[in-house]
Design a protein around this nucleic acid. Structure first.
Length: 152
DNA sequence: GCCAACGTTGGC
DNA sequence: GCCAACGTTGGC
């Protein structure tokens, strides 16, 4: 089983939205970056995913979700009314992928970015690398252990 | 294939 | 709201 981290704006879809309907899968769509997409495609059912809140008041890791469906063609790329529409995508050759995530649990308290940056051993994590904007990234077992500490 | 221009991300 | 840093686009 692998570990991941995804960024999201809680105003759009945060851990609260997962927690509100814990049995309903959330489609993780709208990823429009090739590196992030490639990581989505590597996700497998039952992988665990850290939900990171960005561009908001309280920035940090808010909870954990589980992959419930491995990658499939992101339907929003075919929808002209979607902000994620991509005219270059065809059903034969979709450019973008989505996965489904389900709520696993919320952290007892948000792990803020400044605390994450203060942890030793996370130098390889894209989240804390200067200028990195990657929105889907792998997390090693060791990084997972460091991030969750007593909360795992 | 280069690279300038542009749009986006995301912390502050 | 600012702006540094980055990824993508498109002319050449």
């Amino acid at each position: 089983m692998a570990y991941w981290l995804v960024k999201t704006e809680p105003a759009e879809c945060g851990i609260e939205d997962f927690a509100r309907a814990p049995d309903t899968p959330v489609r993780w769509d709208g990823v429009r970056n090739f590196q992030a997409r490639n990581f989505l495609m590597q996700m497998a059912v039952d992988d665990l995913v850290l939900i990171y809140h960005s561009s908001c008041r309280h920035i940090g890791i808010a909870g954990i979700a589980r992959v419930s469906t491995s990658a499939y063609a992101d339907p929003s790329q075919f929808d002209p009314n979607s902000p994620y529409f991509d005219a270059r995508s065809t059903h034969d050759k979709p450019r973008w992928q989505a996965v489904d995530l389900v709520f696993e649990r919320q952290l007892p308290r948000l792990l803020p970015l400044d605390e994450i940056k203060a942890l030793a051993g996370l130098e390889g994590l894209a989240l804390v690398q200067r200028g990195s904007r990657l929105s889907v990234m792998p997390v090693s077992t060791e990084q997972w252990r460091i991030l969750l500490g007593p909360h795992q």
